[in-house]
């Protein structure tokens, strides 16, 4: 239970970080969103045995961390949260793909390479997604999504879920606390009351949703979530967009680490 309470308080860390005013935070949200999309596309487009060519893609998150003055540990903890899922997906690769290859004089199953590749790709893509929220904020991100003509219903859904998830968790906590105080010597919640607890939660959620909708429509809400006028994209934003995307595309076409390696070994020869 303590962990859950703790996670509620930690949940809004990204919001707090998003309120900083660094160079990266000032970049237009749409530009950051597009850059992240191109980055993610580029990273996942690599084949399952390609690892070394992914190396240049580490630059982007590292620079964002540095320039946006973001704390490494709490963000990496969030990245680790999804890792069990990724391990679950990739852990059987070494079993099924047991063709061995020689790597620096070591015999290794190809499955391990694909597993590592999945881990690196997921690590990179999840990190940049979290960095996007931590440097932009959910509200501005929603604005960027609307600029991309994503239907308002989805954007609204996303924003309201983000806002009310903590209220929902608090509701669950209250119910669990009320249950555990009247059910001593019980671990967890007995399955006989799962149904009624879940039902209660749904009904409470409906009621709250109704009240929120009423309070919205009483203030003139008619389906469009107005978050102010978007700021125009500046010249600096364009340079940021073009610069990074060019880098991602070049890194996708040419294997930069191999070229550098060839250059160095060539020079030594």
């Amino acid at each position: 239970m303590f962990n859950m309470v703790n996670s509620i308080y930690n949940m809004r860390l990204l919001d707090d970080l998003a309120r900083k005013e660094t160079t990266i935070h000032k970049i237009h949200p749409l530009v950051k969103l597009l850059t992240t999309l191109v980055y993610v596309t580029a990273v996942v487009s690599y084949g399952k045995y390609e690892i070394s060519s992914l190396l240049p893609y580490v630059f982007y998150p590292v620079l964002i961390f540095a320039f946006a003055e973001l704390p490494l540990v709490p963000i990496m903890k969030r990245v680790l949260l999804v890792q069990p899922l990724i391990i679950g997906i990739g852990i059987l690769n070494p079993v099924f793909d047991n063709y061995t290859v020689m790597l620096s004089g070591m015999a290794i199953s190809r499955g391990w390479i694909t597993f590592l590749s999945i881990l690196i790709k997921s690590g990179l893509t999840v990190t940049v997604s979290i960095l996007l929220i931590a440097t932009t904020g959910m509200d501005k991100l929603a604005l960027a999504l609307r600029m991309l003509r994503i239907p308002k219903i989805f954007v609204l859904q996303l924003l309201l879920t983000y806002r009310y998830i903590s209220v929902l968790i608090e509701e669950v906590l209250r119910m669990m606390r009320a249950y555990s105080l009247r059910a001593p010597r019980q671990k967890g919640i007995h399955r006989s009351v799962w149904g009624s607890l879940a039902g209660q939660l749904i009904l409470r959620t409906f009621e709250r949703a109704q009240r929120i909708y009423q309070s919205m429509s009483l203030r003139g809400f008619e389906g469009e979530y107005n978050t102010g006028e978007p700021t125009p994209v500046s010249f600096r934003d364009c340079i940021y967009l073009v610069g990074w995307n060019l880098f991602f595309i070049i890194a996708r076409i040419y294997n930069i680490p191999m070229l550098i390696g060839l250059l160095i070994t060539g020079v030594i020869k």
Binding site: D15, R163, R211, I212, R219, G220, E224, N226
Partner: peptide, 24 residues
């Protein structure tokens, strides 16, 4: 409303207070 949480659904206080005027 009785429960302010029902009425404050935007990310910041400013956006919440601006919600009505922006809708108009």
């Amino acid at each position: 409303f009785q429960d302010p949480d029902d009425q404050l659904f935007m990310p910041t206080v400013y956006d919440d207070v601006a919600f009505g005027p922006r809708n108009y």
